[in-house]
Design a binder for these strands. Sequence first.
DNA 1: ATGAAAGCGCTAACAT
DNA 2: ATGTTAGCGCTTTCAT
Lengths: 338, 338
Amino acid sequence: MAGRAGVSVATVSRVLTGNYPVSVTTRNRVMRAVRQLDYVVNAHARALQVGTSGTIAFVLEDITGPSFAEAAAGVEEEAVRYGRICVVCATHGSEERQMAVIDLMRAQGAEAVILIGGSRNEAATKQRLTGYAHSLASSGSRLVLCGRPPFDASQPVSVVDYDNEAGAFAATSHLLSQGHRRILFVGGSDGQSTAEERRRGYVRGLSSFGIDPDPELQIDADFSREAGRRAIRQASERGVEFTAVFAVTDVTAAGVMRELRCLGLSVPGDVSLVGYDDVPLADDMTPRLTTVRVPYRELGAAAVRAAMDLNGDSRREPSHVVLGTHLVIRESVAPPRS
Amino acid sequence: MAGRAGVSVATVSRVLTGNYPVSVTTRNRVMRAVRQLDYVVNAHARALQVGTSGTIAFVLEDITGPSFAEAAAGVEEEAVRYGRICVVCATHGSEERQMAVIDLMRAQGAEAVILIGGSRNEAATKQRLTGYAHSLASSGSRLVLCGRPPFDASQPVSVVDYDNEAGAFAATSHLLSQGHRRILFVGGSDGQSTAEERRRGYVRGLSSFGIDPDPELQIDADFSREAGRRAIRQASERGVEFTAVFAVTDVTAAGVMRELRCLGLSVPGDVSLVGYDDVPLADDMTPRLTTVRVPYRELGAAAVRAAMDLNGDSRREPSHVVLGTHLVIRESVAPPRS
DNA sequence: ATGAAAGCGCTAACAT
DNA sequence: ATGTTAGCGCTTTCAT
């Protein structure tokens, strides 16, 4: 390449990186050679020299989840805005895979690793993540957590969060204010942090209306459609009475809605329903689903910003930004039949 | 690192890559040092030396599209199965961005670049892609196209396809066999290849029933929900009469369904509706959407396989695999009101 | 403004 | 079985 342009490799490097004065004629000569040879620099060689690769890793459970996908879009867009490239890895919920992915990204010299999603076991996970965070920090990288409880500020991990609990509180209050008293919460009590926080909001909503949470009204379910269906089936088999359902997730709500229909119950005529996330699906359901809006795209974007801000000096205090949620009222809630 | 273990760098390399005999004691010593130092190899240095990085690039328009997301999941899974890492880039429909992304991946030494989605202008795009393909091939990489018409076999590009036209034919035939004669096709005629092929299937379906396609019954729309709504609004304003709609995409169908409702029309009572893709949404709509199943996940997986198969000798004939589609009959189609 | 050369961290001959 | 060393392609002093 340098030969073709009749200049030294150093000169080629200078025109290509563009951070050093080069005479116009030389530059043209080089650029012509670049075109003729269809040349691109070797990113690995450059990264090896410069010490950084401009890669942002986004680690999620499953790309197929609409809220994760939305967040991924936010990460991707913001990453390219900063001239970075974005690699996305799925863990399929496995902790080993998560660990493997983080090591992989450390090997790649990723500028930041952004982890989205709740975690199963707060205490143990927190410890493990702290380990990751230090490993990453020691290689000049950053760990950013999305939608998880923050760490204490002494750890080199930033978190971009939203108020899960407040959203759930708002959703529950809405149902309550419409006159519902027997509200079924469909969501995990398996310790998944996101589900747990939402459940807390539900309980607090109830309490603020002076209602004692009835354990019978809380049914386990993960974030899948199938879990939503199963939950309703269980409730029905157990003869649980309720006039409204608060589902931990919009897609869980879709399952709930479907199973309710199978039982011959209409929404919102017989039972009201609210979801969480406000993914596109919510607006396509019939009736359109009342839900809690979570700014996932913005969440992703904020995560890369959090990562980049700390770029200069890695001794900077890790940030904790929390985004707001709000209730989106549509058509799936009505007052209970009297 | 080598110092800490008291061995040479070569030995460290040997135990870490594991492709060379090392005595058990030495291996243990090295592994201990690895753990103590929390060491990971520098992937760039390795790639620089070995000449390949084990990266598969997946290029799509928008991660948020459910069918793309599904394909991305297929790519990701298959890539990790092969021990590769997967970077996903969004082009947002811009050809320049697409070009930039491909160069970027060439610089990264990606083992393969997988491009999904139709293209606007077949002739020009084909030429441009041929250029990319040769560029990639010359750096030992591969271009794989997903869901696009194949190239002639002399070009170094593999394609993994599915029969768009046959699926559309099946969908249209289904409507026809239910007694519909005025079927509105909602989909682009802007030359987007996917839409175009689906439209051809629609026309052929009509023809096979001896019906001349009425231009009035074909309305422009891209793959978005909004486009679906707009199309129905237009049809209604123009006073077009129809008893069924075939939407180019499930999400377009969701828009169609919504707008139909706004017009006071019920599905399938007043008008029948079929979509295309069979994304999860289709099963969550009310009524559940009859649609054409496209095996997107398998498509993605097949794309990485196509890329890897050619790995050994790059002189091998590029492959063209085509996957099947089939109609999924649900509840959005009924015979027309007499 | 340009060239020469060192060196980034690794792997793969080539010794031993 | 292990150590020594060249060199992957680039950027970056240091000369000129």
